[in-house]
Computed example of a mutant assay.
Amino acid sequence: MAVRDWDLRHFRLLAALAARGSIGAAARETGMAQPNASRLLEQMEASAGFALARRTPRGTELTDRGRVVAGLAAEVLEAADSVTRAVDALERDRGTLHVCASMTVAEHLMPQWLAAAQQRLPGMSVTLDVGNSDEVFQRLRSGAADLGFVEGPTVQTGFRYLDVARDELVVIVRPDHPWADDGDVPPSEVAAAGLVVREPGSGTRQTADLALAPYGAGPRFEVGSNAALAASVAAGLGPGVVSRLAVQLALRSGRLSEAPTPGLRLSRVLRAVWSAAAPLPRSAEDFLGIVTHGS
């Protein structure tokens, strides 16, 4: 065997040996029996023409030359991972798209986007998962989704993004609440109130917390959806902070009222997000075209 004939098994063993310092641990990490790992290392040393590792009472450590080769092996493995991610993305390019959207986007914008995609991208199969903004990033990071939509004020590290829409949070109350008729409500009064808010990890909650942070914080009542928040406010639990998109019908019908809070910065950007570690599938690019240019 020549060095040019080494395959990924050889590189994985060398990288594992560098990380673990033991041929037994390296064998377990690469899924080999220890005798097979030892024979593979001997073959590598024979083809290289020099020792890659030395046995010590504490285990197996790489020689100076072995460390150089192990560093190069790590680069080979990283390149192989990039190829795998690219092939996976191209495989998903065949007309299927896995989307994960935060609740406000999923409930109030996604239906029209999906309807437009059905008309303009016939044959595309779209799967939609719904979660809060943190959960969207988790699904993208795990590879369970190709494209995500979030409403939080920040984008996590390792992701690309595109602004697709603007939204505004509003403070809502029952029509018989004093804030419904009192004119402008000071931010400090809003912050001190027992507010009904979304759960941690929600983009709505992140935006509200950021806007209210300079004014302190009173008690909070956490709920897991926009619908539960609106129902809780209507039942008299307290004022709430929620997307205008989520309560526009309730505000128009008079079931809920908006408390004017001009001192609070409650506008936000809705974003499409995707992993920076792999190319965006063509199906996701086509869907983004519909989102950004309308139906």
Score class of each variant (00 low, 15 high):
L210D: 06
S142T: 08
T207Y: 09
H177L: 06
G194C: 14
L97Q: 00
E107F: 13
V170S: 03
A106Q: 02
A217C: 13
S133F: 06
D129L: 14
S202F: 11
E135Q: 15
L109Y: 05
N132K: 12
M110A: 10
W179A: 01
L97G: 01
V196N: 04
V105R: 05
D167K: 10
V136Q: 03
A208R: 07
A193D: 03
V190W: 08
A213T: 05
T127M: 12
V105T: 03
G148M: 14
P111R: 04
A217T: 10
R198V: 01
P153W: 11
E135A: 14
V164Y: 07
R141M: 11
E151A: 14
V105M: 12
L195F: 05
G201W: 10
M110E: 06
A192W: 11
M124L: 07
D209M: 12
W113H: 02
L140Y: 00
S188Q: 13
R174T: 00
Q156W: 15
E151D: 15
S133T: 03
A193E: 05
C100P: 08
D181K: 12
G152F: 12
A180D: 02
G203I: 12
P153V: 09
G148L: 14
F149W: 11
S125E: 10
G183C: 02
F149H: 07
A116D: 05
M110W: 06
L128S: 00
D176V: 04
D181P: 07
P186Q: 05
R160G: 00
S102P: 12
V164H: 07
R160Y: 05
M110L: 13
R141Y: 08
R205G: 01
A180K: 06
G143A: 00
V99Q: 02
F221D: 07
S142F: 07
E168P: 02
Q119E: 15
G158S: 04
F137G: 01
V171T: 03
H108M: 08
G216T: 00
G183A: 00
M103K: 15
T204M: 11
R205K: 14
V150Q: 07
W113Q: 02
P214D: 01
D134Q: 15
D146T: 02
V99L: 14
P219Q: 08
G203R: 14
D182L: 14
G203Y: 13
S133N: 03
V196S: 04
F159A: 01
A144M: 12
N132I: 10
E135S: 10
F159K: 01
A101Y: 01
F137H: 04
D163M: 11
E189P: 03
A101H: 02
A115M: 08
L162Y: 04
